[in-house]
Design a protein around this nucleic acid. Sequence first.
DNA 1: CATGAAAGCCATGGTAA
DNA 2: TTACCATGGCTTTCATG
Lengths: 157, 157
Amino acid sequence: MKQIIQLDPIDTRLVEALQQDGSLSHAELGEKVGTSAASCWRRIKALEASGVLKGTVRLVDPEKIGRGVNVFCNIRVRNHAQEVRKPFEDFLHERPEVIECFSMSGEWDYLLRIVVADVADYERFLMRTLLDHPAVGAAASHFALSMTKYTTALPVG
Amino acid sequence: MKQIIQLDPIDTRLVEALQQDGSLSHAELGEKVGTSAASCWRRIKALEASGVLKGTVRLVDPEKIGRGVNVFCNIRVRNHAQEVRKPFEDFLHERPEVIECFSMSGEWDYLLRIVVADVADYERFLMRTLLDHPAVGAAASHFALSMTKYTTALPVG
DNA sequence: CATGAAAGCCATGGTAA
DNA sequence: TTACCATGGCTTTCATG
């Protein structure tokens, strides 16, 4: 059972602010959320300790590095045994072009988001990497035309 | 036409490192990628200016704040005119539970990733918010059972 | 011309009251 | 919460390959 952490109004605004900009100083954060820098510092430490706040990352423009094409791929596994799924999931973790993977209810077992340079690049990945994996029974690919919205910020509070 | 920026080996490692941990100091980065702190500083400024590096964000554990349920929702719009799609996209930008939205090729027009607390929470969002929007013609929802992989780091180089 | 070393200033984190 | 201090990072300059 996962523990949900309750946040007071200041923590809530703090987490909102940090999700938007992780480079703010404690003083700026204090100003923004309505408390002092020292208080911010303590709250952030507590939020890190409780596991609410995770890492700080720098975001990259996909287009600028030639990874502007998003493909969603539904996967059905040959066999639902853990001995089949686990190695497949490990394999996905090692593939950097697989940005997201969800285990799904319904007709398909997994939904993957994959970033590639172009259609030919995806063909290579699909044919030579994904479909080669022994766990994969069936796959259905859907190309995105554009990214309408993408955020790492979750609604909080 | 989007411009793809070519990165030399040091820039590549720099961007890789910053995508993993955006809180490293220039000195630590220099050590990691094999150059000096000053050089790192200059390179980062250039990568920001060229648009490769975007913001720094803090990540939050979805489970810990009660947003552990992911739903993927396919949407078909009533009408493909820009006068219909644009207001719908603006509407999605205002909905914080909509984390990602892609305009899609194929049978459906949009694919949304939505984070909610539980199934009842999703029902409210679907019935009272999404399906109420005049642009929405049809919707098909798929629940994730678990998040197998999630990263913000794109493959570079 | 870009890089790396050196140095000073300043802001920041951390602590004590 | 406020005030303070010391640490360390940011930024510039300069010499070098």
